[in-house]
Nucleic acid binder design. Sequence first.
RNA 1: GCGAAAGUGGCGGAAUCUGGUAGACGCGCUGGACUUAGGAUCCAGUCCUUUCCGGGUGGGGGUUCAAAUCCCCCCUUUCGCACCA
Length: 830
Amino acid sequence: MQQKQVRTLKYDFKAIERKWQQRWESEALYRAPQIPSRDKFYMLVMFAYPSGDIHMGHFRNYIVGDAVARYQMMLGKDVLHPFGWDAFGLPAERAAIQRKLHPAQWTYKNIEVSRNTLKKTGISFDWNREIISCSPEYYKWTQWMFVQLFRKGLAYQKTGWVNWCPEDKTVLANEQVVNGACERCHTPVEKKELKQWYFKITDYADRLIDDLDRLPRWPENVKQMQREWIGRSYGAEIDFTIKGTGEKLPIFTTRPDTVFGVTYMALAPESPLVERLDMTSEYRDKVEKYRNEVLLRSEIERASATGDKDGVFTGQYAINPFSGEEVQLWVADYVLAHYGTGAVMAVPAHDSRDFLFAKKYNIPMKIVIHPDNQTALDPIEMTDAFTEYGVMVNSGIFDGSIGEEAIKKVTAYAAEKGFGREKKNYKLRDWLISRQRYWGAPIPIIHCPKCGQVAVPEDDLPVLLPEVENYLPKGHSPLADVKEFISVNCPQCGGKAERDSDTMDTFVCSSWYYLRYLDPGNEKEPFSRETAMRWMPIDKYIGGITHATGHLIYFRFFQKFLKDIGWVQDDEPARELFNHGMVMDPKGEVMSKSKGNVISPIDVMDERGIDIARLGMFFLAPAEKAVSWSEDVLTGVEKFVINRFYPLVGAYRGSNPNLKQYFKLSGLDDYSRSIYIKLNQTIKRVSEDYERLQYNTAISALMELTRDFDSDRIKDDQFNDYIIKKAILLMAPMAPHLAEEMWHECGETGSIFRAEWPRYDDSAVHFDTVKIAVQVNGKVRSEIELRRDASETEAVDAAMSDPRVRDFLDGKSILKKIYIPNRLVNLVVK
RNA sequence: GCGAAAGUGGCGGAAUCUGGUAGACGCGCUGGACUUAGGAUCCAGUCCUUUCCGGGUGGGGGUUCAAAUCCCCCCUUUCGCACCA
């Protein structure tokens, strides 16, 4: 009866959404205080690149954070949930070239469109704190960051071999080269020798690795990826000598215990040492020819050549300081210029790469490690190097030393003799941050013929981007062609000087934006120390896994640097990291503009309402899983909302119950008791699900509760209304408009998001009887009902007197009785 | 090649952290009710095989009274790294 009457209540989502979005706006519900006065919660989602409008992937990402923010509000915390735009970058320039717009026009127009869409979704962002990284008010402080790094010697210029994208005509950081190609346009990357700006992130390599252990709430895979990216390895540096010139040839090795097995040395083609070799003209020609050939190879070719290795003999020899032995000195492509010293000692018998190379060029092999004292290796029969630890042989005084112990001994000996030392090495390289493009923050440096590199004084920041005639990439920054921009007086000596014409990598902008949100209007500082002290660290940071070895390392680096110079207190910026899964199209393909399969949340929102779109997305799968979007999921949640959940307000009886009270189980009739227990179980489950961002199961718990709830069977009005209101509260973070509307229909006047999150009644999460399984030899044979926490004797007795069980016990003796309270009895018989 | 994660009905997924009645919740499907009609709503059913018994969480082995869950080997998929000496 109740249901029929209730069904006439129309779920007019459009009116509901409009009403509450306006109310929330006018009440400034999401406005976070400058300084929190209660427990704080900083909920951060990665800001967005404004490439067009918002799609399903954004939508999913942001509703996850939104539900967290709302849940935290209901837990009584001051919640900071800001949003902004990562607005510098190449696509704006491309659009500018194609459509003859200013990059700023294109960017701001996109921001406008996306912001409007986001506002329509009703996500609880505090829009007062919105930041746009390409605005002078923001990039002024990006430049300020550069200046601080420069002052500490952590921003510096050097000439080196860099990744060059011939399409975009700019240099790229290592992190932006994927499989030897430009991350953005997929053009194979070339190597060029150029003078560029770097941040000395390698100074922080140890802290960046070691502090990962202090982040228990970061996903293990991200931490592992960062460890490998930084790639710390321990070993020794040993100085070989070049015969003739006597120049030192230091090499890094993790296996000093194989040093007596060196049969040749190899230099990277790019190594400057190659030029200094005293080669005869015959060899010099060969080496030059080889070098030029190698440099023409693409990164892809060089990187993928894992099997085939080549090189050329220089005619020169190197001397092993341990044995005095002379070995051939080669130039080889497989030696990386940027790692270690750009040279290696080659031990074909104990290194797979050297093994292949030696086989190819018929270089001798020398065995200096045996697997153990019993087994000897035979070089003729070996098909690969023996690379494991073992016993040193043919190594003079070191013979018999084993593994790590051997490594220590050899290194100590070298140190004692002065031709070697312990050494740590990293794969991580310094972060190349200069770009030869227009749409970025100008590097705030002035090059003075007298004073050298001078930082722009802080009072003169920002260095504004000048207008330029066109944005076509030409291999140098478009800013270089603007005379009025370039020529400037030196801030130190007043003489004629020139501005640096490069702009910064956009990852610099995104390395500190989380701090600007704390104090976005501050004109005197990037942010006030007090806001940082009170709001940091970020409590939950949500974003895509794609940033694991880029942004998520950079921003940790910035945080550490800012701590070192006294601006923040914490070593780590984010306490917890959560990686959301991708949203694919229904066929399981990645959505992209070029494929034309981008799905917007707008259509679903228009047709069925925001909350149903949200619930559908939540219900589809746990938030960290990749999903294929399908409208099919909407059917279930829509039926649930329209037929079950929203009609709850029709069953509300206007009793205005006290929500802080608990009911006594003994005072309730059978049905009421069971629904009260169900309610408390649901509160427990839903709360736990919110904590771990598992919204799909939170929804199913609420579905069960509403399924079991039957107002007709409840006599007590207060009790009836109590259940309804608690259910609405539990739904609020996931379906905010719906819950707010229902909350008010139940007579409330304040926002549900200022109401208190339900706490479950610990004495009412269990029934006083339980159904437990009875197993015989581990197989379920029956089910019996017992009082909760029954004794073992009671349980076993009940189990053995069960007729079904008795059949299986017939004629057998009981060896063992296992009783797990409230779960099962297992009888082991024979 | 190295590293990580994951494999459960026709489908999305529960249960995995903490070993204890596998398949919650929903989609889809089947049958029924109500209807002029229904892509609406309601009710029932839905792992396989089936009276019972039995089998079943990618495959194989192990630990255990008991394994989707823990351990070992293998296969597959996804992601990351890709000559880092």
